[in-house]
Amino acid sequence: MDNEIVRLEGVEKIYQTGDTTITALAKTNLTLESHKLTLIMGPSGSGKTTLLSIIGCIIYPTSGRVFYKNNNVTNYNENQLAYLRLHEIGFVFQQFNLIEPLTALENVMQPLLLQKEERENVRERATQALLSVGLGDRLHNLPKKLSGGQKQRVAIARALVTNPTLILCDEPTASLDSKSAREIMLELKQLASSGKAVIIVTHDLRLREFADYTIYVEEGHVSTEIKNEEYYK
């Protein structure tokens, strides 16, 4: 139980647009642990990003409760959640979401600046993070000058630079060739072993070899998590 990072209790997300009601996520109970790499898989539109956004405290559930490190964060206000995201969670978004006016380096510096770290120190750490994803020669490029794979790696560096406890990645390898994808997955796997909770949304079946657990989502229904060993049986 000590390893528990996030716990969802009866969490449900319903979108109401006009007359149509979409249950993006049906009642879900789920526990995510540190030292583990968890995959979330499922068809397009099944609710993976929705699930990830609730885990990442970006959206409020329609009902149910969300616990972060055993604190009920369901009733946190926007600022409290922003603080939690800033200090505890690293995000790699499906569309990278780099900040367009900022260079690769500045993008990676931004979360640290939000944390009010010393600027010199920030520059140093951000540079290191970009070097470790192999982008040492692209520090001062704006996102529009970067390829999809490079953007994805900047996004990964930005997510990891704050040394977050919970790492959430929405299709982190979609734009990468298999060699870079493998490298990134090894890195994420390494982070999980070092004590982080790593959650990855993917369509890529090949990533299962890195996973401790795999969760399936279908039309908003989350299957019980499957231990990978069991899955292969």
Binding site: E78, N79, A82, L86, F91, N97, P111, L114
Partner: peptide, 16 residues
């Protein structure tokens, strides 16, 4: 720039 502002919020910038 709405996407950039949204991203800033998502990675932990406050409304303020």
């Amino acid at each position: 720039r709405i996407k950039d502002y949204g991203t800033l919020k998502a990675i932990g910038a406050t409304k303020n």
